[in-house]
């Protein structure tokens, strides 16, 4: 079974990993982890910020490789026989995900959701929405578990009070 896992950040990825690890999968399991870097829009006026954009691109790729490396490590520990591919690509996330899903013939896409708080749940990200609409395979939108929500919200409060 081929499972595509678009990863956006460590926080959201932890919910995706929890979901995947808690699920039973067939033995012939393959994961394709994707980290998409949105292209930086230059404005089209001049090239004075080329160096800055290149630096940001390199920086983003480093972050992407680190995040994917961490996720891959956790998946390898849980599924020792699984094949794990990692892709960091610079393009619009939905296009990267849908292209790879089609080319790689994914059976399932496990995508993370932002909505940890009730107010944020009203919005599905444009990436999730595009993937849900256009993907040919099944899509699971993973929400963090409620216990995680509680811990995060309380730590958010602590962080905010520390800042004050």
């Amino acid at each position: 079974m081929k499972i595509l896992v678009p990863v956006e950040s460590e926080k959201i990825a932890s919910a995706q990993i929890d979901f995947i690890i808690n699920h039973k999968w067939p033995d012939d399991l393959a994961f394709h982890l994707i980290y998409a870097i949105e292209p930086i829009f230059s404005g089209g006026s001049d090239d004075s910020d080329v160096d800055l954009r290149n630096q940001m691109s390199v920086w983003n790729k480093k972050i992407g490789l680190k995040v994917l490396g961490d996720v891959a490590h956790q998946l390898r520990q849980a599924f020792q026989n699984a094949d794990i591919l990692e892709t960091v690509d610079t393009d619009h996330a939905s296009e990267v995900i849908l292209d790879i899903a089609e080319d790689w013939k994914a059976d399932l896409i496990v995508i993370g959701a932002h909505g940890r708080k009730p107010s944020a749940r009203v919005h599905i990200s444009s990436v999730s929405n595009a993937v849900l609409c256009y993907a040919d395979c099944a899509v699971i939108v993973v929400r963090p578990a409620k216990t995680i929500m509680h811990v995060q919200s309380s730590s958010d409060v602590q962080n905010s009070s520390a800042l004050l």
Partner: peptide, 10 residues
């Protein structure tokens, strides 16, 4: 998808 308290599979 908007209102679900848990993960959703389509």
């Amino acid at each position: 998808l908007k209102k679900s308290p848990c993960s959703v599979e389509v």
